[in-house]
Design a protein around this nucleic acid. Structure first.
Length: 260
DNA sequence: ATGGTCGTTTGACGA
């Protein structure tokens, strides 16, 4: 199986690229974030024509997440489990695809350490963990992927000294990722690639991509059974390139190949 | 080069 995640920064602006990526890579499952669409504007028929069932959870102008699957799509769920404080934003969706419980996540940015949005971010990650407690077992086949807006370690940032005092690298955010690891999930990309300089997001500004100044914030957090069956994990950084008339997202797709 | 980029939108705001 090929399982992928991609923050597209508006599906309207990126639809031709997503269609091309599906044709090139034939993923079994593609998780999208930041579709920025309402559910009734999601191009389900376009993806159906390419062989994909879809589940979209959106609100319109901001956020929006989707799961595309050509190996079945069962038990779709939007948001957090009953019992957790509901999310006012459309930031997470779940579905079982080919026997794997998938989650597509767009974790809040946080804005700054003294902003209310930062506390929302921490609470959001707490509720993600709580929903796992309520709905999954660590022994299941699970892939919780998406834009986490957290760099798990300093190696995931091009210049950690530039990010001191910023979001994405704070101890509290990294503690929330560690809580997912404690629960039983593995950062499967890092398990396959110990080296530095590997990123999934580059700021549009200042030629960051060409200066190799990025962060690795798009993660595939997978259960042990999935990690053990994974033969490769890659970032398609070529997808961050492109001309003004077909501009890239500021995030590149991340995908894993599972031998099953 | 005292700015720099996108996408939402048509004035800023979020990332």
């Amino acid at each position: 199986m090929l399982l992928a995640t991609w923050n597209v920064n508006s599906l309207n602006a990126r639809l031709s690229r997503v269609e091309r990526w599906l044709a090139n890579f034939h993923p079994d499952v593609l998780c999208l974030q930041e579709t920025k669409l309402a559910d009734d504007a999601f191009p389900a028929l376009t993806f159906e024509a390419l062989g994909y069932e879809t589940f979209h959870h959106g609100e319109g102008r901001w956020n929006g997440v989707a799961i595309l699957s050509r190996v079945g799509l069962e038990d779709p769920q939007a948001g957090f489990a009953a019992g957790d404080e509901p999310d006012p934003d459309a930031r997470v969706a779940w579905a079982t695809c080919g026997g794997v419980r998938m989650a597509t996540c767009y974790v809040p940015n946080g804005r700054s350490l003294d902003h209310d949005h930062y506390h929302y971010k921490l609470s959001w990650l707490d509720r993600l963990r709580s929903t796992l407690d309520r709905t999954c077992e660590a022994s299941d086949d699970i892939v919780v992927c998406g834009d986490f807006n957290v760099a798990p370690a300093d190696i995931d940032v091009h210049d950690p000294t530039r990010f001191e005092g910023s979001t994405h690298v704070s101890a509290a955010e990294r503690d929330r990722l560690a809580a997912l690891v404690d629960w039983g999930l593995v950062d499967v990309f890092r398990e396959h690639h110990p080296e530095d300089g590997l990123f999934s997001w580059w700021d549009y500004r200042g030629g960051a991509f060409h200066k190799r100044e990025g962060m690795r914030i798009d993660l595939m957090m997978v259960s042990r059974s999935m990690a053990d069956a994974t033969s490769a994990v890659l970032i398609d950084r070529n997808e961050r390139k492109g001309p003004k008339n077909d501009p890239p997202s500021d995030h590149a797709p991340v995908f894993m190949i599972v031998e099953r």
